[in-house]
Amino acid sequence: MTTRIDRRFARLKEENRPALVTYFMGGDPDYETSLSIMKALPAAGSDVIELGMPFSDPMADGPAIQAAGLRALKSGQTLAKTLQMARDFREGDDDTPIVMMGYYNPIYIYGVERFLSDAKEAGIDGLIIVDLPPEMDQELCVPAIKAGLNFIRLATPTTDEERLPKVLENTSGFVYYVSMTGVTGSALPDTNNVSAAVSRIKEHTDLPICVGFGVKTARQAKAIGEAADGVVVGSAIVAAIAQCYDDNGKRIEDPAEAVATLVKGLADGVRSRQMA
């Protein structure tokens, strides 16, 4: 069974270039604005969309994404609305893969079976759930695979040789290599480490490997793109949205335009280096 994610990476392989994977927080700062941002992403050069599900206690996120989640929750975002956002997006785009990213509890409370069937119906292609390591696969990973969704796993610098096969076992779509130990949005390590890590993971899997956590500029995106099959950008996008509002929450710039400009730059960076 191929998914939108499989098809997208197959096409990029033909085009011989890495993917730009963009993360934003669903409902930040409000539903309509967030949907307009989502709709602007593909044209700006995003190949895969990560749709953030806000959670009150994002233990693995840095300040930028923490704040985005709180803004979204404050404006009334719920898991049901995040699914609706994907549905609305799908009315105009049936090709761009959507991966929902977040924490387990809102899904657990929504109900795993109900969530999987609603997500599938809404046009979701994959899931990244930060607090579900392979040890917890029976919770959501195994049911998600049965439902035809990709379960994308994070591999990290602490995932050693012995553990890697376990992490990759039920992973599909792509592997998300977290390029450093730390929360989202921290400083990027040097690209030498990244390319060594990517080679190490490649010995265990044929899946595409995307690298993220800390990529902010087009130059960094280009450098990471030389080592990996995809570059994930999150905090920089979320920060760009925040900067469209002044201290009183008044809108001073159009967030969809600001994000499109940023993503175009990142996409140019990623595409400027054709893969060998």
Partner: peptide
């Protein structure tokens, strides 16, 4: 062995912390 007390407990942590 999985750290469960019935349905409670477990190891719901990010992969970075799992080896730790």
């Amino acid at each position: 062995d999985e750290g469960m007390y019935g349905i409670f407990g477990g190891r719901f942590v990010a992969e970075t912390l799992m080896p730790l």
